[in-house]
Design a protein around this nucleic acid. Sequence first.
RNA 1: GCGCCCGUGGCUCAACUGGAUAGAGUAACGGACUUCGAAUCCGUUGGUUACAGGUUCGAAUCCUGUCGGGCGCACCA
Length: 528
Amino acid sequence: MKQRVLSLLSSSIEREIVLEKPRDRSFGHFATPIAFAMAKELKKNPMIIAQELVEMFSKEEMFANVEAVKGYLNFKLSEDFLDEYATWALEHPDDFGKGESSSNILLEFVSANPTGPLHIGHARGAVYGDTLLRLGRHVGHNITAEYYVNDAGNQIALLGTSLILEGKANILNEKVEYPENYYRGEYLTKLAQIAADTYGNDVFNDEEKIKEVALWAKDEVIKMIISDLDAINVNFDTFVSEAGLYDDWDRVMDKLSASGGTEIIDGKTWLKSSLKGDEKDRVIVREDGRPTYLAGDIIYHNQKFERDYDTCINIWGADHHGYMARVKASLEFLGHDSSKLDIQLTQMVSLLKDGQPFKMSKRAGTVVGMNDVVEEIGSDALRFMFASKKSDTALEFDLVDLQKTDSSNPIFYINYAHARIHTILNKSEMKMGTIMASNVKGLGEDADNLLFEAMLLNEVVEDAFNSRQVQKLTDYLKSLASTYHKFYYDHKVIGTQNEAKMLKLFLVVALSIKTGLSLLGITAKESM
RNA sequence: GCGCCCGUGGCUCAACUGGAUAGAGUAACGGACUUCGAAUCCGUUGGUUACAGGUUCGAAUCCUGUCGGGCGCACCA
């Protein structure tokens, strides 16, 4: 909708136009402060400029009314235009809210180490990333969802050792000395049992097999992670293995040093990231020749950029923010445009249950598993909760609040609006053909407002994706549901003269809610 | 100490990225069912946008400083 208005305005005004949706509907459907900007250049009173613009546009069929108020230019859309758009939406439900962007984007998210199940912080990144993915695709972009698997380095060996210890302790019932660093948790108990079933109990005493067991365990953990993610409707297109990247190491190193990006001091290779905005240089190869974690990231990001995307989006936990400068520095040295790397951070999550800190009771300690939360409140509530908060602010929420079945629980409230529409459609004797053949004109201001709001989905989705702020969509859906509930309360539908018209209006609302929820990875309910 | 993020009604969050009177939900209180789902709706109370300056037609938003909070500051991933 907004696109159409904008393109009409752009054909007459040669400058960037900010078109906004006024808070107060009496100012129209759309408004622009363009006259203020023009006033500076033309050295004329903005009120006068606005008045001139009114005359330019008031004859357009798209508008019922164009007004100049205090320098703002306010547009009210015509009912013909609104009805035409509504009909189009209902006839093309799969295209509703879609955009025409077409960038190639790589979206990397979650990328949790394959050493244990996902915790609640990962879940936030997963939901945020997957929601961005859905929004971006709806807007028209071509996006690849990728998971970077850190399967090289110490932590895999540590996983192997931890599994062996677990087996010794719980299956062989031996006394074991635990080292300072090792993994623990219920998942290891399960894994040890499977390992015993697969390889036999001897495996826990066979030093030779430690490496093999570690790799096996890593694969098992990845399977667990994938199935955990699947439980909240998060899926990936590609998995990139860190271990597999090192074939490319020599080539990338050559490129780095050729551009003066490296330096060897005390037998270690340093990335001279301080030359590119980082606070200091970073070791990428240790004295003994083993690469550091950063090395893998450098090869990986180089590979990403050589795959030639328009934009690479990374979603990282906020505790990694110190990494941004060094990764970008390496990209610069490798001759890439680091501004194409868009790093979004997700902040910490803390959970309450009925006002008390929610922690896992098991021996694994303090970290809350994603599974545990999904079990408590379900995927829909979890996804909605995370999507509805700005990702870069710390978040605390109470599980009990998300189990409520009233308007205090937004996902419930929105589903209820959708379900009410289906109830009323089922109750009505109207045939779909009759409903579609009617028009939504002449229903009054409440109906016009509801219809207009329902048809704003595309604008909201584009805005949410471009600003990387997915909570704009959840806010929109809450507001739309509220407007609908109000309308429903105030207006009787069945048996009235305007039954078909109103049902057509409701169909648009339902379409918008259903589409919006699906972009959040949630299936709209048709009955509660 | 240095760097990044943040500070908006009692609480959880918005505010179209510099625009019109800072909005929702929750909590508290008071109303609306012989009516398509009251699982809903309506109303009242609650704000010097942490504080002090600055930039301009215009600031919660941008700049500077102060205070307060979170996260980093590995040859771990």
